[in-house]
Nucleic acid binder design. Structure first.
Length: 263
DNA sequence: AGAAATGTTGCGCT
DNA sequence: AAGCGCAACATTTC
């Protein structure tokens, strides 16, 4: 479901709800996609205090007081719910029961995914890419990363190059910089690489700020309203040009003819 | 009823 | 070797 801005807001919300609380119990409902067994999760995490929750690329990290990490990846259709009562969601992947609220109250964090692809990982290792909002994602890194013959969209969404950008925000970034998603990465001139770098930071930060302002505290809203190009709410770009939708497999690329094709 | 989905992986082919 | 295009994942929601 989410890309960097959404995950950033969700992890801030989860941090304010669960940081400092104790993980009493873990129940894995659907083990299929997981690398670890339920016993391993229990052994590693049960009874430990959650220190903080943070984002890494498109994934969530739950850091416990002894330094152990629990990673959660929502994939396309995963959701997190925070419940006071019994979990009744179908498609549940896992349930985490936390304690530590006044009056002995507990809260449950539930991970669901109707496609069954969301997953948890013990001490996950980040993919090789640099986080899109890290200062290390600079001109030199981006220029070097673009020295390949594949399309710019593939590069932007490759988590082994840059972590955090997905199908939607790559379309937004490429429209703002007027670069066609089908441009060959290595053909993009230096001036445009500078624009691209600035747009990556600006669009992701701006979207995070907008989502945070409106949905602070939420952990599972689907926020598409700030997308200007990758959206079904209009068929025109902000400058009034028709938006072209190109389907490749399940994913779609939204763009306009305003965007220059570098080849 | 039929289509949709902001992700990832792996396969065969060029 | 690198890159491409496609299929698979599986189910609820619009």
């Amino acid at each position: 479901m989410p890309e960097l801005p959404d995950i950033e807001v969700f992890t801030r919300s989860l941090n304010s709800i669960f940081a400092g609380k104790k993980l009493e119990k873990i129940k894995i409902v659907k083990l299929k996609k997981l690398k670890n067994s339920q016993a391993e999760f229990i052994k590693a995490l049960r009874g430990k205090t959650l220190k903080k929750v943070f984002r890494s690329g498109k994934e969530m990290r739950f850091e416990f007081s002894d330094g152990r990490l629990l990673g959660i990846h929502l994939m396309l259709t995963g959701d997190i719910f925070v419940l006071d009562e019994k979990n009744q969601y179908k498609s549940t992947i896992a349930e985490l029961y936390f304690s530590g609220w006044p009056g002995g109250k507990q809260k449950t964090m539930v991970l669901t995914d109707r496609m069954g692809n969301a997953h948890l990982d013990l001490d996950p290792i980040d993919k090789a890419g640099i986080d899109a909002l890290s200062a290390s994602l600079n001109f030199n890194y981006l220029k070097k990363a673009l020295q390949r013959k594949t399309t710019i969209k593939k590069v932007l969404t490759d988590q082994d190059i840059i972590r955090g950008i997905g199908n939607s925000y790559s379309d937004e970034i490429l429209w703002v910089t007027r670069i066609s998603p089908y441009s060959i990465a290595k053909a993009i001139p230096d001036e445009k690489i500078k624009d691209l770098l600035a747009a990556i930071k600006k669009i992701l930060k701006q979207a995070t700020a907008q989502i945070y302002k409106k949905y602070k505290g939420k952990v599972n809203v689907e926020v598409k309203e700030f997308l200007k190009i990758h959206t079904k709410t209009t068929d025109k770009s902000p400058t009034g040009k028709p938006i072209i939708i190109d389907q490749k497999g399940m994913m779609k690329t939204y763009y306009t003819k305003e965007q220059v094709l570098y080849k």
